[in-house]
């Protein structure tokens, strides 16, 4: 799928012939948009946007960022990027595929990655002279673990399902849990044949199953088996994100899009001021998505999502000295 963001500016430039049929409209646009038709001050700087290919998502993200940087930046589609004039103009990349496209430009521009996982950014080899910073989409695993604890206060054991490769993802978590009266164990499944046996053993061990951002395990092909098996065993899945809550996971913490947009705008502002992005970071605020139907069916009393989120924050604050996200 072609990944081109479709926002208002692009529409107008892509369809100049339409404007020629509406000179009155153009005049009125100029009156309404003194800054070259973008609704921005004359001293604004450009930022390119590499879209994800999901039109609705791209427009939504662009709208959120435009709201926050309207005074200083103008967002243009990546198709307007021309070397070398666009050199050192930052690119907002929405999603991992967009990061790849932006990084493949020559010369590589500074890239601010949004809606990406920490692992995908860390693994990206980058290119000499390139800058890559990100606002991670995923939730720190300790926060996801505490999401389960806030819903099942009586829980003490967390089951983790991972491949040998992805088990590293959970290693930092294992040392953080003790402060919260929790322990966890990783059950390894490296092949499809090993998935259900490992899952069964994991469900026998844990009070709930915690899912991290591990596409090898939690993907559209596996999730049916995982959710049905867990449900039949009266066990719940926490995480890995909101999509899986819709599928049948009981809950997941998630960073609100407007919070991520706030952080993205701050990254952009810092770039404008210093010429460098700040280091990649997790969002600073999280909310909780719950599946009330599944909770009711499993006879699990479910606090309000806001209450769950505040319980998580309280637990993290109380143990702030012993660990950090």
């Amino acid at each position: 799928m072609t990944a081109i963001p479709h926002f208002a500016a692009q529409r107008r430039f892509a369809h100049g012939y339409a404007l020629s049929l509406a000179a009155l409209c153009a005049l009125l646009f100029l009156i309404g948009f003194p800054a070259a038709g973008y609704g921005q001050p004359a001293d604004t700087r450009e930022v390119f946007v590499a879209g994800s290919g999901n039109d609705a998502l791209d427009q939504y993200v662009i709208r959120l960022i435009e709201e926050r940087v309207r005074e200083t930046l103008v967002l243009r589609p990546l198709s307007d990027w021309h070397s070398p004039s666009s050199h050192n103009v930052p690119v907002i990349a929405i999603g991992p595929a967009a990061v790849t496209r932006a990084q493949n430009l020559d010369p590589p521009p500074p890239v601010l990655a949004l809606l990406v996982k920490k692992s995908s950014v860390e693994d990206y080899p980058g290119r000499p002279g390139s800058q890559l910073s990100a606002v991670y989409q995923e939730v720190p695993l300790i926060r996801q673990a505490l999401t389960g604890k806030a819903i099942l206060p009586q829980a003490t054991r967390i089951a983790l399902l991972a491949s040998t490769e992805s088990s590293d993802l959970y290693q930092p978590l294992l040392g953080q849990l003790e402060a919260f009266g929790l322990e966890a164990r990783i059950f390894v499944a490296d092949t499809n044949d090993q998935l259900i046996p490992a899952l069964n053993r994991a469900l026998s061990y844990g009070d709930f199953l915690l899912a991290g951002p591990d596409d090898a395990i939690y993907n559209p092909r596996n999730i049916k088996h995982i959710l049905l098996t867990a449900y039949r065993r009266n066990k719940i899945l926490i995480g890995p994100n909101q999509i899986y809550v819709k599928a049948g996971a009981l809950a997941s913490s998630y960073p609100p899009m407007d919070t991520m947009a706030d952080q993205a705008s701050r990254h952009l502002e810092q770039f404008l001021a210093t010429g460098h992005f700040p280091p990649s970071d997790y969002p600073i605020e999280y909310r909780v998505e719950v599946n009330e139907q599944v909770a009711r069916s499993l006879n699990i009393p479910l606090p309000d999502p806001e209450q769950i989120a505040s319980t998580i924050n309280r637990m993290l604050e109380e143990n702030a000295g012993e660990m950090s996200e």
């Binding site: 427009q59 559209p220 999730i223 959710l227 049905l228 909101q242 599928a247 049948g248």
Partner: peptide, 20 residues
């Protein structure tokens, strides 16, 4: 002018089926 968007269904891969 921005389209309505359900921020809870952000996904780039194949859609995740509703299982339960």
């Amino acid at each position: 002018d921005a389209p309505e968007f359900d921020a809870s269904i952000v996904g780039f891969d194949e859609p995740v089926p509703e299982v339960l």
